[in-house]
């Protein structure tokens, strides 16, 4: 711990943060998992999905963008905070067409895994919007099934900031805001299967699909067959 480091608490546990770190970055290093969907290692923080909402001194903030501050008391795992998160995740299910039983991302999907972690057991409170979206399979190696898109923007940031391309961007406003390709379809962009934006880890759901893969990973060996989402971060703490 250097002189400039600060300390604060998450659910009563004292945490050390380096200068400029967000609450989430400090928590990750300490082995405390804060749920998130739009945030991803190696990409700039966006604070869009709000699934990482925590209470900092009683005020709701996005842990992925809120700088850690000395002495703050952060509430992460409690009924009230998790209910807010569960409501957000539930609304994401209602906004798209998420058919887990037939989705090849099932078991690797962060949205599905988050629903399990947050114990979303009654996904019938809100009306399903059932948007009508076609699959864009024009690219020889990649297909986009935007029925499953949650507008997290991870592909937008990966393409722009890591690949230096800008294959994806947001269009529309409010409830109509969605991710679109900068072209007539994906085949008319400079998307490439080797792009970071197209890698398995960037899309948290089954929207960006690599062709010729399908269900090649058996049940039992998928990412979240190994544990609840966040298990790797929480594993650091358990040693």
């Amino acid at each position: 711990m250097s002189d400039q480091d600060i300390t604060f608490t998450i659910d009563g546990v004292e945490i050390t943060a380096k200068p400029g770190q967000t609450i989430m970055e400090a928590a990750d290093e300490a082995g405390i998992y804060i749920p998130r969907l739009c945030d991803h290692e190696g990409l700039r923080h966006q604070g869009g999905c709000r699934v990482c909402t925590v209470k900092a001194n009683g005020r709701s903030v996005a842990a992925c963008t809120q700088p850690a501050a000395a002495g703050i008391a952060v509430e992460n795992e409690n009924t009230h905070v998790n209910k807010m998160r569960r409501d957000l995740v539930e609304m994401l299910f209602h906004e798209g067409n998420h058919l887990c039983p037939i989705c090849e991302a099932s078991g690797n999907c962060e949205l599905q895994a988050m629903a399990y972690r947050l114990e979303m057991v009654d996904p019938t409170r809100f009306p399903y919007l059932e948007p009508c979206r076609a699959v864009d399979a024009s690219h020889p190696d990649i297909a986009l099934d935007t029925n499953r898109c949650i507008s997290c923007g991870r592909c937008i940031r990966a393409s722009k900031d890591v690949d230096g391309k800008g294959v994806f961007g947001y269009v529309g406003r409010g409830i109509h805001r969605r991710v679109a390709v900068n072209g007539e379809d994906l085949a008319h962009t400079d998307a490439d299967a080797a792009d970071h934006a197209m890698s398995d880890e960037v899309c948290p759901v089954g929207c960006i699909i690599r062709k010729r893969v399908g269900f090649v990973t058996p049940i039992g060996e998928r990412e979240f067959d190994k544990g609840l989402i966040g298990y790797e971060i929480e594993g650091k703490r358990r040693g």
Binding site: I102, A134, A143
Partner: peptide, 14 residues
């Protein structure tokens, strides 16, 4: 119709 061929064996079994 419109689904990708690799998904079909999993979808139709439903």
């Amino acid at each position: 119709r419109g689904r990708l061929l690799w998904e079909v064996p999993v979808i139709v079994q439903r």
